[in-house]
Amino acid sequence: MEEIRIERHGGIAHIILNRPSVRNAVTLAMWREMAEIFSCFAGDRDVRGVVLRGAGKDFSVGADISEFEKIRDDRHQSAAYEVAVDACSGAIAALGKPVVAAISGYCLGGGCHLALACDFRFGDRTATIGIPSARLSIVYGVHSVQRLLALTGVSNAKRILYSADRFLAEQAMSMGLIDELHEDAGLAAEKFLQRLAANAPLSIAGAKYMLNGLSMGPGALDLAAAQGLIDAASDSEDFKEGRRAFAEKRSPQFRGE
């Protein structure tokens, strides 16, 4: 059984963590594979949005702790492991296309790490979110802490990290960990992304780059790169198409170029 499945529904790709027997615990190999998958999507114009979800009843209980004795036994192995984890979340955040985490059941630790890197988090009523690092004597990575802080504010971020508690769907939503609640989070995420797919890809990519950079704290945004995205959109065929469609009172047909 593949540990990560990819399904495509039109222009929307579904990345599915596929270890339901262990509640989709993420191995080191999976962190690395997901980084590659999301990086490859950057050049795939047929993909206009991505849903990240888990197989079965859970999103993910987080990193597969059963392999830690072999691959995360000391500071050196831990540092190498965090490089792989950050590369994965970085690839999700860097993808210039909207990504929605569809959360059912447990979304804990590394699973929360994945969800935080997405643009949006849709949950259902079974969603339970938490970061139990304080029960394992693990200090959560800097990039994930910054994303958590940007979403929840400092008081809630401290509550989440200090307590290692699990928060049910309604409370997680009130804290900023979930954006929307739906009966079927995966279906709602796909419909939402299909609506976004009608908009200009270059506009979304530029907005995502700037908002992610600004949210990560002073100095994180490369202003020259941001200006490059602005300039590229201004010179694009999509910009011309947008103006033509506006003048002709029709829906634009954007191609991301």
Rank of each mutant, 00 (worst) to 15 (best):
A198C: 09
A127G: 06
F192S: 13
A157L: 01
A127K: 05
H182M: 07
L116Q: 03
D184P: 00
E180L: 06
G153H: 07
Y140E: 13
S155L: 12
E180V: 10
A127E: 05
F122P: 12
G130F: 04
R166V: 13
C118R: 04
G176I: 05
C118Y: 06
D165V: 00
M175P: 01
A172H: 01
L136F: 11
L181W: 00
A189D: 05
D165M: 08
G130S: 06
G153P: 03
V145W: 00
A197D: 09
T152Q: 06
I129Y: 00
C118M: 07
T128K: 12
L114V: 14
L151P: 04
R166T: 13
D124R: 09
A164V: 04
Y162V: 11
Y162N: 13
C112T: 12
M173H: 03
K191H: 07
V145G: 00
A157K: 00
A197C: 07
A200T: 12
A197M: 09
A198V: 11
A172W: 03
K158Q: 09
H182I: 07
E180F: 06
A198P: 04
G176E: 09
A198N: 10
G186K: 07
S144N: 15
L161V: 10
D184F: 07
D165K: 11
L116P: 06
S163D: 15
V142N: 13
D184A: 03
D184N: 12
V154T: 04
F120P: 00
A157S: 09
M175T: 00
D165T: 02
S137K: 13
H182D: 09
H113S: 15
S133R: 07
A117H: 10
G123E: 08
S137D: 12
H182Q: 08
V154I: 02
I131P: 05
F122H: 14
N199T: 15
L168D: 11
A157G: 02
A185C: 10
A188D: 04
Q171W: 00
P132M: 07
I138L: 15
L193V: 04
I178G: 04
A188E: 04
M173L: 08
L114M: 15
V139Q: 12
D184K: 06
A198G: 11
T126P: 02
N156Q: 10
K158A: 10
Q194D: 10
E190C: 10
Q146I: 14
D184L: 02
A189K: 01
V154E: 12
L151C: 11
D119V: 02
A117P: 11
A185K: 06
T126L: 04
T126F: 00
S155Y: 14
H182R: 10
A150V: 03
I138K: 14
L187Y: 11
A164G: 08
A127H: 05
H143M: 11
